[in-house]
Write a protein that binds this DNA or RNA. Structure first.
Lengths: 225, 225
DNA sequence: AAATGTGAAGAGGTTCACAGCG
DNA sequence: CGCTGTGAACCTCTTCACATTT
């Protein structure tokens, strides 16, 4: 690890393990459902069951204990304050403005996904380099030319950048977004991005995931049934 | 880890670390470029440079040494046999037939992505539950009703299943695909899937990745500039 | 009695340093 | 001398076992 981004950030005086966060998000999701279904308390084992036992109960207890003393020994957890704590820690209370760069199939799909998923994400700006795509509308956003990124983003405030451009362009787009003060990037380009301190990047490596699958299948004795 | 899927599979007598595979794929990608540009040899440090120093050179040497003795001490690696070895190990020599289940925005985008990316992936069947989507055509594939999955897939051979359905349906779709003999699944639903031995699953947790970003931004001193 | 919270052990992967070899 | 290949140290996260508390 070259830069200090992987040091856990402190929120309300607690430091969270980065890998635990998707799990916390999963807890939040199923707890909201359980609460809607009328449940008021839950045990770590019960939560593991709701998650299909994809996460072990000691792991759940360890994750939750990092958020403070939320459980009751002998009883379990009260769902409502637990959900509130999770929402606060995960930043689910804020609204986020997203800039999507690259509006090919992947960018388009992610835009629809992110906007449709929850109303806390607003796609505020979309950019592309292709004249065929620039000028298209998506809901009330018009796709702007990527050369106009600095100009547009000085008017439209965005917190999160989504990079869905070809590998060759990804690093330069990332640098430009970082220079504009955007500190969180989600990168779908196959090149892993590398940015310095206050900017935080997540790389989604779809081709890499596919490679894992094709490797496993190649290693199986009988490929293709 | 509950099931034995995470034991490294052996291919040509070697066992590969699962997390190394996306890296091997990245090496393959940039080496193909370097070879096309006329380079014939490369060192581990040179390869790290091509990757923008996102991967350290000792890591590269360790990854490559697992594939056999491919390097020449004092010289580096000869690109051509290295590329061939990587392609073989990653299953890049085979063609793969993909079944996409769920043809909403995510499913549609991924279908286009996977098919457009490289010609070794063929989307051979598409399923959806919505009457509005069933019957649509994508290239020469007609979207079939998900209830017909067993019937269709008994005719059309598929090696890889892509799950892009809502969380509530994901596990049951996965079970049905597994029962049909599909042993590799890529899951975009927020529920992590859990399947027994010969089936291998990769979960792409886009919502979880976004949570990491919103958590980081919430923990920053000044949210939204 | 039941279930949390946690120190300790374990597992897995990365980094380091250097021996080995062309 | 240069660069690979690798055992050992290191680090991070997960699992375990149990003391603790209601």
């Amino acid at each position: 690890m070259i830069d200090p981004i992987h040091q856990p950030l402190r929120l309300d005086g607690i430091g969270l393990n980065e890998v635990s966060i998707p799990r916390l998000y999963a807890y939040h999701r199923v707890l909201v459902q359980a609460h809607a279904a009328g449940k008021t308390t839950i045990t770590s084992h019960g939560l593991a069951a709701l998650l299909g036992h994809t996460i072990a109960s000691p792991q759940i207890r360890k994750d939750l204990s990092a958020l403070g003393t939320l459980g009751h020994r002998g009883r379990g957890y009260t769902i409502e304050p637990l959900v509130e704590r999770l929402a606060h820690v995960l930043g689910l209370e804020h609204d986020w403005h997203v800039a999507v760069v690259g509006f090919g199939y992947l960018g388009h799909a992610f835009t629809t996904f992110i906007a449709g998923r929850e109303r806390r994400f607003h796609v505020a700006a979309i950019f592309d380099a292709s004249p065929a795509i620039v000028g298209q509308r998506w809901q009330d956003v018009t796709v702007a030319d990527v050369t106009q990124m600095e100009r547009v983003l000085s008017h439209v405030n965005c917190n999160i950048g989504v990079i869905a451009v070809p590998a060759s362009a990804a690093q330069s787009i990332a640098d430009r977004l970082a220079a504009l003060g955007i500190r969180a990037l989600l990168n779908f380009a196959p090149t892993p991005l590398h940015l310095r301190a206050p900017v935080f990047v997540r790389n989604i490596d779809l081709a890499g995931e596919l490679s894992i699958l094709t490797h496993r299948l190649s290693a199986e004795p009988n490929v293709g049934e």
